[in-house]
Amino acid sequence: MVGRNWRALDHCDDYRSTIDADKVQEASQVVGTKQESFEWIIVRDSEDVKVHTTDTQVAVSLQLAIQAAIAAVLSITIGDNDQGRAVSQDLKQFMKTKQRNSQKTVIEGCKHVYVHTTDTDVAVNIQAMLQILVAIVAKVDIA
């Protein structure tokens, strides 16, 4: 038996003759969240889909803030000289890990779905950077 696939918006077909269900769905596909260019969540022919993802904007600004704090502490304690720059360079090499996952999630033909994705790389990196800052601060007797 060749049946027709279930489609989330079938019940819209005769709802109002002026609405074309396919067109409505076309528009709602865009609701899928894209964070930078690496994470894609595509929602197609579905309804009641909730999406929760890592807030990339917050992650990036936190990374920059911690980096700035590390630079400031090093500049005050070691000085803005070759030695300070060498220490900073060595630390940066450690922090310079891949910061984004590349993941693509496709939700198709679904109802009542909750999607939660976490960018583990960015979370671990932020924690590592904070740990480095705390370790430096402890070394110079501030903590």
Partner: peptide, 10 residues
């Protein structure tokens, strides 16, 4: 100042 900064970031 540094102590406060670290607490805020944490």
């Amino acid at each position: 100042a540094i102590k406060e900064l670290v607490e805020e970031l944490s």
